[in-house]
Simulated scan of single mutants.
Amino acid sequence: MSPSPNGTIERTPDGGIVRFDRSLAFPIDEVWASITEPARLADWWPPFTADITVDLREGGKIVFDWPETDFPTLEFVIVRLAAPTLLEHTHTSPGSWMRWELEATADGTRLRATYFIPDLDMAIERGDLVGLHHSLDRLAPALAGNPVAWDNDAFIELRDAYAELSPTEPQT
């Protein structure tokens, strides 16, 4: 399967999986730094200003605190780590997880982001898929040294486009 900017949604017996596959024209070490270093994460992942800490070890935490907004602190626990190719951590809902897989290519890096969520419909409704897509759209400019701000209009456009997708049913 060749990389695509669009996510895929798959229903599973235990919930659902959202997958993104992106080609980035940057070396693997740069992409790794952008998903593991707090200042670099802040350039592209969160929708608003965040104080981010990362204890980069299995059992360590990735913490997003929101000093300018009334939003709960997010804490993810790192469950698998193999620098610079694999980072897996828990996510916001109980039982959910996020996996970042990096592969060096002739043109840069292939990034595969996989998000498992027990309640897929809730994740779609609250915008997890759209938010991750929009954040990943902001990753390449951040890697190029030109971070772009969160764009609510772009988020709404993506939300409308994804609303037309129907998740595939579980494979039996």
Rank of each mutant, 00 (worst) to 15 (best):
R19Q: 11
A163G: 07
R19H: 08
P67I: 00
A82W: 01
A163W: 03
Y162N: 04
G108K: 02
A154I: 09
E58K: 11
G127F: 02
G60V: 13
W150V: 00
D128C: 06
R112Q: 13
T36R: 03
P3I: 08
H133P: 02
S23H: 12
G95N: 10
A104P: 05
V18C: 07
W150D: 03
A140Q: 12
W44N: 07
A163N: 04
S4L: 13
D137V: 09
H134F: 02
W150Y: 14
I156P: 00
V77Y: 00
L139Y: 07
T8K: 11
E30R: 09
D55P: 06
H91L: 05
I52M: 06
G15C: 11
L139D: 02
I62Y: 05
D65Q: 00
S34T: 03
E157C: 07
S166N: 09
S23V: 01
W44R: 07
D119L: 07
E10H: 15
A106D: 12
T105R: 08
L41S: 01
D70Q: 12
S166K: 10
A161H: 11
S135T: 02
R11P: 02
A113K: 08
D151F: 02
D21I: 02
A83Q: 13
L136F: 06
L165E: 15
S4Y: 03
G16W: 00
G7Y: 02
W97E: 09
L143H: 08
R22K: 05
V54W: 06
V79I: 14
P167G: 09
D160M: 11
F71E: 02
I17S: 05
A161Q: 11
T49A: 06
G59R: 05
F64A: 01
E164I: 12
T172M: 13
A106T: 13
T53I: 01
A42S: 09
I117Q: 13
A83M: 04
E10R: 15
L165G: 01
V54S: 10
V77C: 05
A25R: 15
I28A: 03
K61W: 01
A106F: 05
I28K: 02
W44S: 12
W32E: 04
E30L: 12
L56R: 10
L74W: 14
P170K: 09
D151V: 00
R40D: 04
D137S: 10
I78V: 14
V130W: 05
M1N: 13
A82R: 10
M122S: 09
E125R: 13
G95D: 14
E125K: 13
S34D: 05
G16K: 01
I17N: 06
A39L: 06
V18M: 09
L120P: 04
L158K: 04
R57L: 09
L139C: 07
Q171G: 14
D43R: 15
S96V: 10
T49I: 07
A163L: 11
L86D: 01
S23W: 00
F64S: 00
F64R: 00
G145K: 13
A123Y: 10
E37L: 12
E125M: 06
S23E: 13
Q171D: 14
T36F: 10
Y162Q: 08
T85R: 07
P13R: 14
L143K: 12
R138E: 12
G15W: 04
E30Y: 00
N152I: 13
P13L: 14
T49W: 08
E37N: 11
D21L: 13
T109C: 10
L111H: 04
S93A: 15
G108H: 07
H133I: 15
